[in-house]
Design a protein around this nucleic acid. Structure first.
Length: 376
DNA sequence: AAACCGGGGCA
DNA sequence: TGCCCAGGTTT
């Protein structure tokens, strides 16, 4: 749910230089007009449909990738009603290749809500726009400012970087406290009430352009920046420290035992459940400890003596949220043809040379690749 | 390999 | 209400 006035806290006087706060918008607008981007396909229109479509596509996707998709979408769906009426498959097919497919589903749903519940008209405030599927606070503000001249601020990753550097905002922007402070700051520097719609658009576009061009993550081009003389990061050489990086949290270590069950040159792979880690991929049978793994091996026909298996080289795989230590155990058996008949697609014996034809998690593939030479 | 990313779902 | 995730790309 969108919070109208974000934190209900005023920017305390003296937190930032008053001159910089007051001059920020006019200087950004002047810079955008001189040095910003002006020829993107979704600029120079005030059609909320076209602006909305571009903003959704631009979430997590760069401009050059979006451009051809944007053109195809508009050609096929010139209006929000046309998009709303389209079969889901058509929408998904046109989106194919852009990634983040929940965006496409939300896009379609949003078009239907606008058509069915808003008479085909997009709402004109960020708050109302953010009620729609796939539109959050920042995207809502972007659409409202470009399409309706609303003096509302965006706050995406680019803008957070610019504000953190220019104003010297400390702390990790992913932290709620810091993000709230940035919303307050961003709201306090939007163009004044006298600003024209064109100035409001240039301002929002300027925030995007500055973050995307001069003030990028890697090495900002401070020499060309309109705020170089006031920028805290530039003055202190802390461009690389601002904004503060996500605090490294110690990722949890997990450990799993994997059964490399071999019959000749074939290894047994199990199909994983459709959701969760490696959902739907083919992988080795797993157990939480060595004893449990031995039981699984016996269930697949290994003798008591052989079930513990031969330890292979352990390997570590890093996920976003945890590290996984894999302890492989090699067990050789004679495959059970009857069980294979009855297995219902739950497992398969696959010659090592053919595992590339199966969807196998990268670390498991690596493990199995290591087995090919010596054993054959 | 690690950092980054707006919105949505969920505790 | 705040935290974390999914599913990608960039560095």
């Amino acid at each position: 749910m969108y919070k109208t006035s974000s934190p209900k806290v005023q920017l305390p006087a003296g937190t930032y230089p008053a001159g910089l706060l007051a001059s920020f918008a006019p200087r950004l607008i002047a810079w955008q007009r001189e040095h910003g981007r002006h020829d993107l396909p979704w600029q120079n229109t005030r059609d909320p449909y076209r602006i909305w479509l571009s903003e959704i596509m631009l979430q997590q996707t760069q401009v050059s990738t979006v451009i051809p998709y944007y053109a195809r979408f508009l050609e096929r769906f010139p209006t929000v009603e046309a998009l709303a009426a389209a079969p889901s498959d058509d929408v998904m097919a046109l989106w194919a290749g852009l990634g983040y497919y929940t965006r496409a589903r939300n896009l379609h749903r949003c078009a239907q809500v606008v058509t069915d519940e808003h008479g085909g008209q997009f709402p004109s405030t960020g708050e109302a726009l953010a009620e729609l599927p796939g539109i959050g606070r920042s995207t809502g503000a972007a659409i409202a400012s470009f399409a309706f001249g609303a003096r509302e601020t965006i706050l995406d990753g680019n803008v957070k970087r610019v504000l953190a550097r220019v104003f010297g905002v400390e702390g990790f922007p992913g932290e709620k406290r810091v993000e709230n402070a940035m919303w307050t700051l961003a709201e306090s520097i939007v163009p004044g009430a006298a600003a024209s719609d064109a100035e409001v658009s240039a301002y929002t576009q300027g925030l995007m352009d500055l973050g995307a061009t001069l003030c990028g993550r890697g090495k900002p081009d401070c020499a060309r920046c309109p705020f170089a003389a006031d920028c805290v990061a530039n003055a202190t050489g802390r461009q690389r420290e601002l904004p503060a990086a996500r605090p490294k949290k110690v990722v949890p270590q997990r450990r799993t035992w994997m059964l490399v069950l071999m019959d000749g040159d074939a290894v047994m792979l199990e199909k994983r459940p459709p959701s969760g880690i490696w959902g739907g991929l083919w992988s080795l049978p797993e157990a939480a400890d060595e004893a449990a793994l031995a039981e699984r091996a016996q269930a697949y026909g290994a003798s008591d003596a052989a079930a513990k298996g031969i330890p292979l080289m352990p390997l570590t795989h890093t996920f976003t949220h945890f590290k996984l230590d894999i302890e492989p155990r090699l067990v050789e058996v004679m495959r059970d043809a009857a069980a294979l008949e009855a297995n219902d697609g739950a497992f398969a014996w696959v010659p090592l040379a053919q595992i590339d034809a199966y969807g196998v998690p990268a670390p498991v593939r690596k493990l199995l690749d290591g087995l090919r030479g010596p054993l054959l």
